[in-house]
């Protein structure tokens, strides 16, 4: 390689290098332009995209809003109570997807009645699938204790899946943020959303339980299970949050199981001595009415549960059960 050659080579190399340098400068400047942020982060952080749960309620049918069936056999009282309201076909159309929300809050066995009875859940699943010919039934909850353990020990996981339902456990990606219009507490709060977003109908099914803070846990309180995050802070204002849950969740139908009522030590129970047989099962399209009737099973008055009045004044339902002309029946 001669001196001259080397210089020629150097020139060419210089040009190539200058071109690469130019591209690098352009890339750095371009990236800076694209990412340029004149303001910096705001105080509130990045706003989350908000969702709203669908309204699952059906138009009211006067005289067929609430039924109360006495009897000790849950399967028969459930069938009768739904039949009295017009049958499951009134609520579920063929080919629909139904979400069932039982109370699976605790990892305790069915005999303690801290959770919805698995026989009831299974029968409701069968009614939806076989009688109303629903396409799909999902059973889901966001429990307090470990979710997998709750579904296993309560017997609901096995009973519901054997009846043909799909169990959905509360994985983190199923939660979305919501704000309740007209609400005071539910603002930009994570809610168990995805399983319900894909459903056509929603049925809530809950036991009647003593609850030290709110006096009673029934169908409205059952939807506490839809809240995510550190939802326990709402206990500071328990009546408002339960009323807001009833505003946020508009189920097609609710079932309130008072076959065995947890009279004391609720909502966890823990002993059969906490239970009393009341042999009553309620089906209702009005949660407020169902709970207003149910509190009587706990020897409570409607005024002992301030959340009922709150929900009524929010227009969710009525505490005046007689105005709904409840249908009573007894199964011997």
């Amino acid at each position: 390689m001669t001196e001259e050659n080397d210089r020629n080579f150097g020139r060419r190399r210089f040009l190539a290098r200058a071109a690469k340098a130019g591209i690098s400068i352009a890339a750095a400047a371009g990236a800076s332009y694209l990412l340029y942020d004149s303001k910096g982060p705001g105080a509130g952080g990045k706003a989350k995209e908000l969702v709203t749960l669908p309204d699952f309620s059906l138009p009211a049918r006067p005289g067929q809003t609430i039924s109360v069936v006495k009897g000790s056999d849950r399967i028969r009282t459930l069938n009768k109570a739904i039949e009295l309201l017009g049958g499951i076909e009134r609520f579920i159309r063929p080919g629909e997807t139904v979400a069932i929300k039982p109370n699976v809050a605790f990892a305790s066995p069915p005999m303690l009645a801290a959770t919805t009875h698995p026989d009831l859940v299974a029968e409701l699943v069968r009614l939806c699938l076989n009688k109303a010919r629903a396409k799909k039934v999902i059973v889901t909850d966001n429990p307090i204790n470990d979710p997998a353990s709750c579904f296993a020990l309560s017997g609901i996981g096995k009973a519901a899946s054997q009846a043909g339902a799909k169990i959905i456990l509360p994985k983190a990606h199923l939660f979305r943020h919501t704000t309740l219009a007209g609400g005071k507490l539910i603002k930009d709060w994570p809610v168990f959303y995805e399983p319900f977003a894909g459903a056509d109908k929603l049925i809530g099914i809950a036991p009647v339980k003593d609850h030290h803070r709110s006096a009673a846990s029934m169908t409205m309180k059952n939807f506490y299970g839809l809240l995510g995050g550190r939802r326990n802070i709402f206990h500071q204002d328990i009546n408002t949050i339960i009323a807001e849950l009833a505003m946020m969740v508009r189920p097609t139908l609710v079932i309130l199981d008072g076959t065995e009522v947890m009279m004391t030590n609720g909502p966890t129970g823990g002993s059969v001595s906490d239970l009393r047989r009341a042999n009553t099962l309620i089906a209702s399209t009005d949660m407020v009415a169902a709970d207003s009737y149910g509190c009587g099973l706990l020897d409570l008055k409607v005024t002992d549960l301030p959340y009922l009045a709150k929900a009524q004044s929010a227009g969710v339902g009525t505490t005046d059960i007689d105005s709904l002309k409840p249908i009573f029946a007894t199964i011997s």
């Binding site: 609850h211 030290h212 803070r213 206990h235 500071q236 204002d237 966890t268 129970g269 823990g270 906490d274």
Partner: peptide, 16 residues
């Protein structure tokens, strides 16, 4: 002076 008792509610024993 805020009501709460989440602890009492969740105590799994009977009696709590």
């Amino acid at each position: 002076d805020k009501p709460c008792i989440v602890c009492q509610e969740n105590c799994p024993l009977s009696p709590k």
